[in-house]
Design a protein around this nucleic acid. Structure first.
Lengths: 238, 238
DNA sequence: GAGTGGTCTAGACCACACG
DNA sequence: GTGTGGTCTAGACCACTCA
């Protein structure tokens, strides 16, 4: 990155800067390599630190950089593919499911989930709420909240330990016939809880995958899974 | 939004601000309603404009606000569901396909696409490149580049008009047997061309859907579709 | 304690939309 | 022309990591 100044262009500086740095990443940097710090880079390009940060933030959003406070900015590896295909028709917690249960509570779900579940949408009705995590290459890549009305998993209610409760709820689900599921993907930002599990700051961009599990014409469970948008590419194999 | 000051908290101001404004949106504002301008809001909450903007940017990313220069900040409608299910196994341009062709060129594709196509990955080999747009409710929501090696669509090569060329390439594809497809979704940011078609600024967040069409064990086409992340929720019906 | 990225301020000017 | 969001600056302090 030998460049010292930006040429005069009509394009905003931060956008041009992003292009220049992006090209430098391709040609002059290896994965994992650490970049000069923000103050150094800003000086080198002759811009304010805030302007440089706009460019770095874009590159981070695109998964090309990783930044950690107190450490530095490093070149990110290519995103890993994570299979979320629906064709392996099965309940969560089934065979080949790599998620790890982290706990189970009874809570009143968010209203959007209440509606999907067809439970009392005034938000009073409590449902089983199973927290799970997906780890790949030693790194947490997704956090999930699975909502199951008590009707579908009566056994789980009185279990002492939280993780044992999760196992119990998942087991109850698997005893039901699975008639179908539908799925949606959208952009979101990590809440405080998800952020902690994903080892990111709150507000970090995530891909939110919402799955509705249908059994006998009723919604038996709703899963809201948030995948780290910087490190994941969701794949739908055929 | 009668609030005037933020309480002292340990949480960063911009994050707390985002929460406060987000709650106000739910309770005090209607879809399409216009918010006070940035300077006004910043003054009202007793923060610098840049801090306020961090909060508004987050809410925009989550699809809760729409901002247009020279106009103002308005409350966004809920995201619309866009079906991208792979189960309706068909070539692009088939029946029920709502995309509109916008042009057709011969270009050397990006290296990632070259690799997927199995064409000469030195990037010299030219392929048909069809530009298409998806419009919903009078609003452009996605822009696509469809890459088809000339082997699979020889007829399209010498057509005079660009849009006629697109039709020709799509017609040639439909004559091939479609043996399968796979798909991936990831977060990206709009390039200059996509931004223009999507009526957004370059760098706007998009959901990038990459589809590989397989015919007789060969990749016959690769589609790279970018959906506006602020307005779209991708759905995979079953 | 030194160095990093994260937050925040108080200004300024620009590009764009609209009457 | 007026008002909006978008860009940019030159500082400051904080939270975190690591030697």
């Amino acid at each position: 990155m030998g460049t010292t100044r930006l040429e005069a262009v009509q394009e905003p500086k931060h956008r041009h800067l992003k292009t220049v740095i992006g090209e430098a990443l391709d040609s002059e940097f290896a994965v994992g390599q650490i970049l000069p710090n923000e103050r150094e880079l800003a000086a080198r390009f002759g811009v304010a630190r805030a302007t440089l940060r706009q460019a770095l933030e874009q590159l981070t959003l695109e998964g090309r950089l990783q930044r950690r406070r107190g450490v530095g900015t490093t070149v990110a590896p290519p995103r890993m593919g994570v299979d979320v295909s629906t064709s392996s028709q099965d309940w969560p917690g089934g065979p080949g499911d790599a998620w790890e249960s982290a706990g189970c509570l009874l809570t009143a779900p968010p209203t959007a989930v209440s509606i999907a579940l067809g439970t009392d949408s005034d938000g009073d009705e409590q449902v089983h709420t199973v927290r799970r995590t997906l780890v790949r290459h030693g790194q947490p890549v997704a956090a999930e909240l699975l909502y199951v009305p008590q009707v579908f998993a009566p056994e789980g209610t009185d279990v002492p330990s939280a993780t044992a409760g999760a196992v119990e709820v998942l087991r109850a689900l698997r005893r039901l016939p699975l008639d179908g599921q539908d799925r949606a993907v959208e952009l979101g930002s990590a809440g405080a809880d998800d952020a902690k599990q994903l080892d990111r700051l709150p507000g970090a961009p995530v891909l939110v995958v919402t799955t509705r599990y249908v059994s006998a014409d009723r919604t038996a469970a709703v899963s809201v899974a948030t995948y780290r948008a910087d490190t994941c590419r969701l794949t739908f194999g055929d």
